[in-house]
Amino acid sequence: MQFEIRPAKGFSFDFKELIRFHELIYFFTWRDIKVKYKQTVLGFTWVILQPLILMSIFTLFFGRVLNHNLPPGINYPVFALTGLLFWNLFSTGISNAGASMVLNANIIKKIYFPRIIIPVSSILVSAFDFIITLVLFGIILLYYNITPSAAMLWMFPAAFLLSVCAATGLGLLLSALTVKYRDFRYIVPFFVQIMLFLTPVIYSDSVVKNEWSRLLMKLNPMTGPVHLARCGIAGLEPDQSILFFSLLINAAMLLLGFFVFRKTESYFADIA
């Protein structure tokens, strides 16, 4: 095979190369999953414990106050857990992806492979955790004797894909920015904390009435997936405008993240 090394100019993406390195995506994801709970007593149970505990706390403290405007047939614990599952996928995804390039700087400085593999595999780790927490979700549904509607079968996967897109777009952007400006190491955790309250995770999106606030809420990349997932359980028709804005913003984020990442990618080794 003939290869060529040239100065980094313009914008291009070698998709064939990514295919050639596809095993490495698997290996990085596998490494992070394996390492994550090494030397812990509870191991994978932590994946389930975290949302379970958060759900209990929110139910205990906000359950009464925020108990209105819930979709029919859903109680507050299930409502909050649905939001938390998708929120966790997004928040751990962007936090880990954001830090991933700096954490793996020693590898980046020594070996070449398509750099995008690193943030993408940290998102995949979050996706893996999400799938495990679905077990918890199933148990909770059984416990409260709630039967989700058949629409959940497509709405949940769609919400999952939207969340992964959101996390990937923002994660790529943040990982590139963190390599360049270490300030983002402090900005990201703070941003994630604030976003939890700006996203309808522990409250219903119908609580927000003001027209401008509603628009702002719809521009939040995670509003759409959470809304879609809840409609899936309750068997409601999802709000068209929420879905439209969600698709728009997530597609835009994905493109922006990808573009910024590609722009800085070749110089990572010089500035990392």
């Binding site: 095979m1 090394i5 040239r6």
Partner: peptide, 19 residues
Amino acid sequence: KILSRITPPSSGRIQYNGR
């Protein structure tokens, strides 16, 4: 580093066969 593609050259080019 340039040969192993860790950092790009500022100018010039390199062609090679194989891995």
